[in-house]
Nucleic acid binder design. Sequence first.
RNA 1: GGCCCCAUCGUCUAGAGGCCCAGGACACGGCCCUCUCAAGGCUGAAACACGGGUUCGAAUCCCGUUGGGGCCA
Length: 469
Amino acid sequence: MASGVRVRFAPSPTGHLHVGGARTALFNWLFARHHGGTFILRIEDTDRSRSTEANLDAILDALRWLELEWDEGPPTPGYRQTERFELYRAHAARLRAGGRAYFCDCTPELLDQQRKAAEARKETFRYNGRCRDRGLTAGALRLRIPGTGSTVVDDLIHGPVSFDHAQLDDWILVRSDGTPTYNFCVVVDDVTMQITHVIRGNDHLSNTPKQVLCYDALDYPVPAFAHVSMILGADRARLSKRHGATSVQAYREAGILPEAMVNYLARLGWSSGDQEIFSRGELVERFDIKDVSSAGAIFDQAKLEWVSHEHMKRADGARLVALVRPFIEAAGLTAPPPARLQPMLDTLRERAKTLRELVEVGRFYFERPTSYEDKARARLLTPVGAERLRVLGERLAVVEPFTAPALEALYRALVDELALKLVDLAQLTRLATTGRTASPPLFDVLALLGREEVLHRLRAAAAVARGAP
RNA sequence: GGCCCCAUCGUCUAGAGGCCCAGGACACGGCCCUCUCAAGGCUGAAACACGGGUUCGAAUCCCGUUGGGGCCA
């Protein structure tokens, strides 16, 4: 059901997609999907010196990874600010013709001088409107704003926020060199794209009254605003590089599940009762912008990993197979065919928070042990251990079927026979077959490895044990 | 500096005047389960920033202070 709701996410391709930006994009996307509206992607690339195509590609890629598909935007032309200068020019001309904006030729030196004077008087510098009625035909274009009264931004998250006009000044729409300013471009873009709800970072709240005044001057209806709090680092300062990984890409490479990233980001500053784990569908269904917190939230990687772990446990098996394959290859290992890999992953998924951990924890499935844990080796790979491995090899060579229950029965019987505890043979076998003292349930591991492989690993470990002092 | 935003356990939050000597989750500790590691179950410690009001009654409303953040410079 299509509604009139139109929202947008407008990143600048000056870097990777930041988790804060990703959350803003997510809230826009959720709002659009919840209301059956339209989610638009616009590229704010007017800063040509810092914007690159590579950054843009990386951002689009990250958005796709999060499955925040956009209904309008690139590659369709017309959604990049650099393609929209004619629009800015036309709107500027309209404001000037209607007397809502005027040219100003005050030099930077003059402005600077006034700024210093204001500071000396301990006042805040505001442009004094010197050129308002001079009828100039060139210079910087300024918006004429009311000298008295106030503008109230009725924010969906913060409620009404009032700004005194006395605090504002006739701000510059278009610089004397003809380039439109950020705030002006945003207004023209939002207006021409018929945006109904502007959901963006809290850092833009202070710019909003200026923009509202511009909508008024243009005689356009003002959209609804929702200013989402920022994501903070552990020291409560805005999350930045010095706090660690900030880009979505970094978490993708670390093996965080995309649905976990979405879940975590949504839960950061938003909640629905006591629920922590949400599917994408549940998020769309439950999301309400009014439930978004107005306070800043600290990015907690431990919680993100826990959420990822929860999704790891629930993920569809075939999907997990597809997701983990690149990580197996990146580790220099070879992935078994899906039919063999999937049951292996089922023994690993509750032991790993990320796809990368999934590979680390299950490394022995993909390659033979290249070493044995030192302490365990000294304790278990001894002459006695060698003899036990020999006996185990004999029994395992003939047990039928080679399944977890049958193997467990074999081990339990043998333990009784040798007057040992299960743990004695289990840890020995575990070390021999995985090289480690911790692994998924042993009998599952053996069954998955297969008889021939297990026998081979047992013999290799026995050889090491015999060679030990 | 001016303006604006924010303030419940270490962290994310529930709480929209009495249900709260504050609930859930992550992280942390303990116990149980157990072939190891996990997972799971039980359990412990842990918060309404401070000060004034308003009210029979405030985490919840108002004012101020403090602290943090943002925007403009």
